[in-house]
């Protein structure tokens, strides 16, 4: 405790440096103990993600769902609602997208793609909205409800790709490929970088404008800061809370659809595993500001792409890679929290 107090008393830049240093030490010690060179690991991590065109495009591809889900989490957080179940909403978005596009394959892509995207937003929005209504009407803790609904979603995905949505050949637990018309083409030839990036950036702009310049954004913030003051002023605070989780889920659902339409082309197990959890860190580190979310999403994408290179290049086992990744995320979150704490002291 005393050392934490000591770090908290440092000026902000030093505090962040101290956390970074502690994280680096911890990771190095772990890698050394497992018989790997930390320096070499660092080199590989950077080289794999930022050192070549392919890596760079993978980073951007990875940042797209993180951005969309991060936006969703930020919207809910603005109303002080903690959506930790974006993973489930991503799954239901993807199910909505795949289910809808496979059900109406005859339509032209120009019609089917937007409609399927809407189906994805509705799917994710419903899944988030359940938690929203439970919170608004019965004051059920949204953290618990969204986590639990995520487990339900994992099972629902498993059932969908082994049951109603399983491929016609009935061999693998996956769906048929979605019609070509709903696939998001590549933006740059020879890479996997797809038009989902444009969708994500549009969503960033739309979310920013909605939160900053509209009455909706104001009401959301008011409910987040003082729900009773909002209610006494005629704002329907419970409705806003239910709505925030619905929109949050809708954005996560869109992330799921973009991931299917841009990368996988069909529904399969674990197609976006962990995106929803990482997106929490993305939103927090961006301080819930939509404009910063693509940047923090890129940071976490670098980490994720580079870390998977560690396994390929150095043979570092995946569990250890995940631990390294987790330590870096924790360090980021702690550093961000320490900076916010400083702000709080000044404001008071």
């Amino acid at each position: 405790m005393r050392s934490i107090q000591f770090i908290a008393n440092l000026p902000a830049p030093w505090r962040v440096a101290a956390i970074a240093f502690a994280g680096a030490l911890l990771i190095s010690a772990l890698l050394l103990a497992a018989g790997f060179s930390p320096l070499q690991a660092l080199f590989v991590l950077i080289e794999q993600s930022l050192g070549n065109g392919n890596g760079l495009s993978e980073v951007v591809v990875r940042s797209v769902p993180l951005t969309l889900a991060g936006l969703g989490i930020a919207v809910a957080f603005r109303a002080r609602v903690f959506n930790v179940g974006a993973d489930g909403q991503i799954i239901f978005g993807a199910i909505g997208f795949v289910g809808f596009s496979l059900a109406l394959p005859g339509l032209s892509g120009w019609v089917l793609l937007p409609l399927s995207m809407v189906a994805a937003i509705v799917g994710g929005g419903l899944w988030g909205g359940i938690a929203g209504v439970l919170r608004a009407r019965y004051n059920a803790n949204e953290i618990i409800v969204t986590i639990m609904l995520t487990y339900v979603a994992f099972q629902a995905l498993g059932w969908a790709i082994r049951g109603p949505l399983q491929e016609s050949a009935q061999i693998f637990p996956r769906s048929d490929a979605v019609p070509d018309g709903v696939l998001l083409g590549t933006m740059i030839e020879g890479t996997r970088l797809h038009w989902g990036l444009a969708i994500a950036l549009l969503a960033v702009a739309a979310t920013y404008v909605a939160l900053r310049y509209t009455s909706f954004g104001f009401r959301l913030d008011a409910v987040g800061e003082n729900p009773l003051a909002a209610r006494f002023s005629g704002i329907r605070d419970r409705t806003m809370i239910a709505l925030s989780l619905t929109i949050s889920g809708g954005l996560a659902g869109l992330a799921g659809a973009v991931e299917i339409a841009g990368v996988h082309g069909r529904l399969q197990d674990a197609f976006a595993e962990g995106t929803g959890i990482t997106a929490i860190a993305v939103a927090l580190l961006a301080r819930l500001n939509p404009l910063f979310i693509p940047l923090t999403a890129l940071m976490f994408a670098v980490l994720s792409v580079g870390a998977s290179g560690l396994q390929r290049q150095l043979g570092i086992p995946f569990p250890l890679v995940h631990i390294v990744e987790a330590i870096v995320i924790l360090a980021f979150v702690i550093a961000g929290a320490l900076q916010n704490a400083d702000r709080g002291v000044r404001d008071a």
Partner: peptide, 16 residues
């Protein structure tokens, strides 16, 4: 508890 948004500027409190 029910009248103001303490962290927000006066103008946002007026908007409320």
């Amino acid at each position: 508890g029910t009248g103001i948004l303490p962290d927000q500027p006066l103008s946002e409190n007026h908007l409320l």
